[in-house]
Amino acid sequence: MSTPIASAHTVADFDFELPPELIAQHPAAERSASRLLDASGPEPADRVFRELPALLQAGDLLVFNNTRVIKARLYGVKSSGGAVEALVERVLPGTQEVWMHLRASKSPKPGGRVRFADAFDAEVLGRCGPDGGLFHLRFGGDPFALLEAHGHVPLPPYISHADGEDDERRYQTVFAKEPGAVAAPTAALHFDAALLARLAERGVEQAHVTLHVGAGTFQPVRVEQLTDHRMHSEWFEVPQSTVDAVAACRARGGRVVAVGTTTLRALESAALVGELQAGARETDIFITPGFEFRVVDRLVTNFHLPRSTLMMLVSAFAGYERIRSLYAHAITGRYRFFSYGDAMLLSRAQATRP
């Protein structure tokens, strides 16, 4: 489902200098107490996230990603005694098998075994993934149960501390339901029960999709031309109830507000053929400037890594120059960046739907 879009931009156009101290190492004391850069109007406004209900109107539809982050990071040893650090990328449905990133001084061979957390063994079945960069292993039991018991929260590479009890709670949305993500849908981390209740009281409807976020979300683009980049693939599902909710929102003149780039990615992937369609499948959609959005009118999102596909996505959505200006405003204003950082509210640059 890859959709390369012709663009005059190069990867360098999406680079920026970020003072290291602005990379948030811990979440705000309260979820909804984080800052919100309101870019829904002509001029940016500095707000607090709990003000979001006042920026929406009755009849709008918030769409969330209800994926649940699994404890995907494991430490172990090969049968030879060599240390192994692993990150599960995907649990294969209905099996005891996983795809994982695996770091070791010497890669294990098919048929080899790895003992994780000094608690359970896994058999190496071979290499896998689009470029053969992942390892295919079979666990000796239910992967979700074993990861929950022996794994670690897969904090992003730019967070320097080891995972702890607070991360188990805060690197997870309050409505997380479907296990499978190895990274959080971070824009949704700002929502708490009280804020969700206030949004409902205001008449803002809510719906869900599921997209299991992969580790590829953190990878910078390492080629210069956007058309040369090979996008990572992620599994998603859009239920019929969400398709119906979007149609009802359109009928009443409301706006579809995606909470996070993963939600936007799922919705726009499900509408590539024209109308939004229910179902579950893989997507490797690459959204760059020039992309025609069919579903999402507004986007709640955190601040993203330089040279990343997510920088390209938000630039496609809100406009390249607009995003450059907003990021400069955020850096000057000392906003906190990345997964545990602050958020912004964007309006789609296109005035009309395709």
Rank of each mutant, 00 (worst) to 15 (best):
C128Y: 05
V182M: 03
A162C: 10
K106E: 10
V98R: 01
E123Y: 09
L146D: 02
A117F: 02
G112R: 15
R103F: 08
Q96R: 15
K106R: 15
D131E: 15
A72L: 01
E165N: 12
R138S: 11
A149Q: 14
I70R: 01
K109N: 12
I159T: 05
A183C: 07
A187C: 09
H161Y: 09
D167F: 03
Y75A: 15
L146Y: 06
Y158W: 09
P130L: 15
F139N: 05
G94Q: 08
C128S: 14
K106Q: 12
G151W: 01
G140F: 04
H150V: 06
H101A: 11
P93K: 04
G133D: 11
G141K: 09
V77Y: 09
E178L: 10
G81R: 11
T186S: 14
G112F: 12
M100C: 14
N65H: 04
A86L: 06
V84D: 03
E85K: 13
S105H: 10
V91C: 04
R115N: 08
S80R: 10
L146N: 05
E123K: 15
G164R: 06
D118V: 04
T186M: 07
F64R: 06
F135Y: 12
E89D: 12
D167E: 11
V114E: 01
R73D: 04
K71L: 13
R127P: 06
S79I: 08
A188F: 01
V114H: 01
R68V: 00
Q96W: 10
L74F: 06
G81L: 10
